[in-house]
């Protein structure tokens, strides 16, 4: 990564709050995310850490209120998305440049139209194609996402497809408007392992062949490590560790990343070592303390006040004052 290069997506100092009847709650507080063109970037985090909020914020689809963007910039190709109006987002960004793949493929597809109709509709609207051209293109898209028997799939309704096939149709839809950036929010949740592997491979292949940029959100580090070049670990809306996927996941420096990685059950012989994933549960509300302070097993008094990003290597940073600088 050279310093002079402008990243494709650059998120800086993004702060998002939620206003509820119990007051304002901090949801996201991201220092920096840089994604280069054609790269796959993974975000690992448990539910409730703000992964989906991040995705929705990038697309400006976050419901406001209760959401509220307190500060920050999201630069796509140098253009600040947060400064754009809703109309501009609709005309220039959503679908055209960025598309999103959601967890639940059934609710994203319209159940009363056939797969072909939905694709053709999008193509006609967004790319000003004639109906006939759109049909050819739609078929092409279905072939691109490796749907078996694409000709017949065109005439099928979403409920006639399996979960994996539906997710492939969604990916085809996302790509059909020419989006170069895809946000995949847990695209394989609720899918069987065999189907999941296929979807992962597809996303990886598209990234390689079409040079699309992918932001991949998941709670399982295994999914991220097999698909993404760079990754970030999100905890309570803050990035606690980020960098090259291999480095982060092979050599985790943040206690939380360590816990996440050790929590995946492997086999009988390899018992989950609870002492390695142990978390303490003190409810201390400390301003300025490390975000992970309450649950950390390694915490010291320094953690109450100190909070800084430490560079482990050129491509690996961690937000933990106990990590040692390289």
């Amino acid at each position: 990564m050279t310093e002079s290069k402008v990243p494709y997506l650059h998120i800086k100092d993004l702060k998002v709050n939620f206003k509820t009847h119990e007051g304002t709650k901090k949801i996201l507080d991201i220092d920096e995310i840089k994604i280069d063109k054609g790269q796959a970037y993974g975000i690992i985090g448990e539910s409730g850490t703000g992964k989906t909020v991040l995705a929705l914020t990038i697309l400006k689809l976050l419901e406001m209120p209760p959401g509220e963007i307190a500060s920050g910039r999201i630069l796509l190709d140098g253009d600040d998305l947060l400064k754009k109006t809703d109309k501009q987002m609709e005309r220039e960004v959503r679908g055209k440049k960025i598309s999103m793949i959601f967890q639940d493929p059934m609710s994203t597809l319209n159940p009363v139209y056939t797969v072909g109709d939905q694709l053709i509709n999008v193509l006609v609207k967004n790319q000003n194609l004639k109906k006939k051209e759109a049909k050819v293109k739609a078929l092409e898209m279905l072939k691109l996402v490796d749907l078996p028997d694409p000709e017949r799939c065109m005439d099928k309704y979403p409920h006639e497809l399996s979960g994996g096939q539906r997710q492939r149709v969604i990916i085809a839809l996302a790509l059909s408007c020419g989006a170069e950036f895809i946000i995949a929010d847990e695209p394989t949740r609720n899918l069987d392992v065999t189907i999941q592997a296929g979807i992962l491979k597809l996303i990886k292949n598209l990234q390689r062949t079409l040079n699309v940029t992918v932001l991949f959100i998941a709670n399982n580090p295994g999914l991220i490590s097999s698909t993404c070049d760079n990754a970030a670990v999100l905890y309570k809306g803050e990035i606690v560790e980020q960098g090259n996927t291999r480095e982060v996941l092979k050599n985790p420096k943040h206690p939380y990343t360590f816990v996440l990685l050790n929590a995946i059950p492997k086999s009988k012989n390899e018992k989950i070592n609870l002492s390695r994933i142990a978390i303490t549960d003190v409810e201390e509300n400390l301003d300025g303390a490390c975000i992970y302070y309450n649950k950390c097993i390694k915490k010291t008094d320094d953690c109450k006040t100190l909070q800084k990003n430490i560079k482990i290597s050129e491509t690996h940073t961690v937000k933990c004052c106990l990590a040692e600088e390289n």
Binding site: E46, I272, L274, I277
Partner: peptide, 9 residues
Amino acid sequence: DVVSQAQIL
């Protein structure tokens, strides 16, 4: 999630 899963298991 994975961490709670590990604890439950």
